[in-house]
Design a protein around this nucleic acid. Structure first.
Lengths: 156, 156
DNA sequence: ATCAATCGTTGACATATTCAACTATACGTA
DNA sequence: TACGTATAGTTGAATATGTCAACGATTGAT
């Protein structure tokens, strides 16, 4: 079988199951687009030795909001123990620093170092490229509307 | 601290990080909505001893499209070996049956039994409830538009 | 002063993902 | 027809991720 015929058949089988009612299921659509997007994002971020997770932490650490680890866990829907591991690694690479909370000394705020900010600036470019790949089938207006609907679903 | 004050503060800290630029990132929005939705879906399906994954397989097995395991793996973005485990369990519970492919005897098609179809009918009701919870902040038109945009992003 | 609750951390355990092998089957080509 | 290559499903190993309970330090309400 030729390569071209292979591709055609693979596309055909994908389209074939599209007729199943699960293609109307939001959970499925989110899972599938997220799965495909993660591959592209992680591929784009690998160049900087980052993954989606560590990239997210780095953005929040660089936001000026001085999030605590607990806030990061809540916001990223991760277990606090996973944040420990992510921050440990970024801190070891001198991309972020932990500081005791000002009002609450139990908490530790995570802020990006200047080295972290520099790396983030580069990585953000790659991430934007990956995002445009994920949404390649949408025009600009559609992409904006999709993001707005996702934000509304999450935070009203 | 009172329960009410706790909730208020938790909501406040969530909203606080919303100002970070990551809230504009499609990958993040997809991950977060998907994470929240999975919890609701799995909770709703637990009553039927199903999870999102096995529910998806059951839907496709019941679609009349007679998908092969390879097609299921491609469509659900899963490794073929994960499909084996999912189908094994559903088959053990007599909810689906494997049959050799008609043209290709290497392939095995997965079809729902009548018992599987019955369980699916019940589970689908619960899943619809969970979906409406996930999209509670959207009105009907917005939900439809969100699904349409997700489908377009995936399949053009 | 005390007591319950919270933050970060650690470690144990369960689950998921990824990948390389293997058998059986299919299919193009000599 | 026979051969070589590719693919479907399966297994098992290696790795990664998720979940959870416990702990010391600190907080804040009573």
């Amino acid at each position: 079988m030729t390569i071209e015929a292979q591709d055609e058949q693979q596309a055909a089988t994908k389209d074939r199951l599209l007729a199943a009612p699960i293609s109307q299921d939001v959970g499925f659509l989110l899972a599938k687009l997220h799965a495909g997007g993660s591959v592209l994002n992680n591929r784009a971020l690998a160049e900087f030795d980052l993954k989606e997770r560590s990239y997210s932490v780095l953005i929040l650490a660089n936001s000026g909001l001085e999030p605590t680890q607990r806030e990061l866990a809540d916001f990223l829907s991760l277990d606090p123990s996973q944040i420990v591991a992510l921050v440990d690694e970024l801190e070891k690479r001198k991309l972020v620093a932990r500081a005791p909370g000002k009002q609450d000394r139990r908490a530790k705020t995570v802020t990006a170092t200047s080295k972290g900010a520099q790396l983030l600036a580069q990585a953000a470019i790659a991430a934007r490229h990956a995002e445009s790949e994920v949404l390649a089938a949408l025009d600009d207006g559609e992409a904006v509307r999709l993001k707005a609907l996702l934000r509304k679903a999450l935070w009203g």
